[in-house]
Design a protein around this nucleic acid. Structure first.
Lengths: 220, 220
DNA sequence: CGGGTGCTTGATACCGATCAACCCACGTGG
DNA sequence: CCACGTGGGTTGATCGGTATCAAGCACCCG
């Protein structure tokens, strides 16, 4: 089993599928690669496929008239994006850009739709994906509207900790500038937020983060 | 055909369903009423149903630890909400409150799920609903992050205009304070945004809005 | 007439964006 | 080996947008 296959197999898209359906879905997948900073999708483009990240990270973002950009989501390995258009199709609603060396699995919509007609477990998986994304995006709106930048950063750090530990050290999965975008911040603001969290027992050196007292941090 | 039925029949939930399925779905609906300001759902509650608005308006919102609230969506007649949990179920992710005298149709999840197993058109409708909500919510994140308050207000006003007219007069569908919440603003900020748009040819008196030059307003 | 309720207006404070300078690590070529 | 450039990050100064707080205002309804 190739590396790509094993990553895909552990995605929510494939979760719980019978091996027949899973294999046929795998056959539908095109594996494609992108260099850092390359545009994978441009907003408004005709849409005929959705994607699952196999390696690397991608940014989904929109821009306004004068070219400023706002990130909507950062996708990690095993995340899918643009699965929306299984429902309606049409055009992509946002730009997608490779944040580093990226490997994607590309699924043509109509192939998947046909397969889903034979096995509704696939349909249910896609529904589940959309439901998860919808809930996450709603949470994002709420978080932007009622939390301050440091609170959002603290929140993100806590989300990276495994439950049960009183303290923890880990690495950020990607560049700080990317993380800033994900949290709706300018890079400078992320930097300052880390500074502010120092007195809450957060130490950041490069991409390494140490949290002295997880429970204490949760108070903010 | 009752008033409730005719509203529901024109919702996206029922769009394009065969009359057999549509009738069986209608039978599943409980019609329930709420006074203004009453809580329909509280965040964290066990979830076993989703809803379609028949009359009035409802607010979906989250609160933080200290009780401040942020609106996520305002639902109008024929909108559905909480349809997410067809996929996973579990608990409601936000509070829902009646903004005025509200009539809802309540659909028990498992009843709908059973019906959808027999007619996938229903499944497809629900997918379409979720896809629409997801795209709208992503747009909301991007809009919050890249547009100023006046731009968001202008944008909302334009969305209320019918295409083709050079100018237009219409009524806001609900209270300004509700609209402010929907746009992620304090009521004062909405008021000031209306003030700022005056010089772009926007006149607001009570709930009546007049836009002199739609094309000009679109420039902002 | 009195008292809500919803909205507006003004004064102030604060958060975060922006701009500019600087720092550091790293890689490259003279 | 060092000069240089580059990219990512930090730091500081400043500005602008929006929340917040506090009055004041308009309308509705008893």
């Amino acid at each position: 089993m190739s590396v790509e296959t094993s990553v895909l197999a552990r995605s929510k898209l494939f979760a719980g599928l019978g091996s027949d359906t899973a294999n046929r879905l795998l056959k539908l997948a095109d594996i494609i690669r992108f260099e850092p900073r390359v545009f994978i999708i441009r907003e408004g483009q005709r849409a005929d496929a959705f994607f699952c990240v196999v390696r690397g990270y991608v940014r989904l973002f929109k821009t306004n008239e004068i070219g400023r950009a706002a990130d909507i989501r950062i996708c990690e390995p095993r995340d899918t994006f643009a699965e929306c258009l299984i429902g309606g199709g049409g055009i992509y609603a946002y730009n997608v850009q490779a944040a580093d060396n990226v490997v994607l699995a590309r699924f043509a919509i109509d192939g998947v739709r046909r397969l889903a007609e034979e096995d509704r477990a696939l349909d249910r998986n896609i529904m589940r994906l959309m439901a998860d994304h919808l809930l996450a995006t709603m949470e994002c709106v709420a978080s932007d509207r009622l939390r301050t930048s440091s609170q959002r950063v603290a929140n993100y750090l806590l989300s990276q900790c495994s439950a049960g530990n009183p303290s923890q050290t880990f690495r950020l999965p990607y560049q700080k500038s990317l993380l800033a975008g994900k949290l709706g911040l300018a890079p400078e603001a992320l930097s300052r937020a880390f500074g502010a969290l120092k007195e809450a027992g957060v130490t950041v050196r490069g991409r390494t983060v140490r949290i002295d007292d997880i429970a204490a941090l949760r108070q903010m």
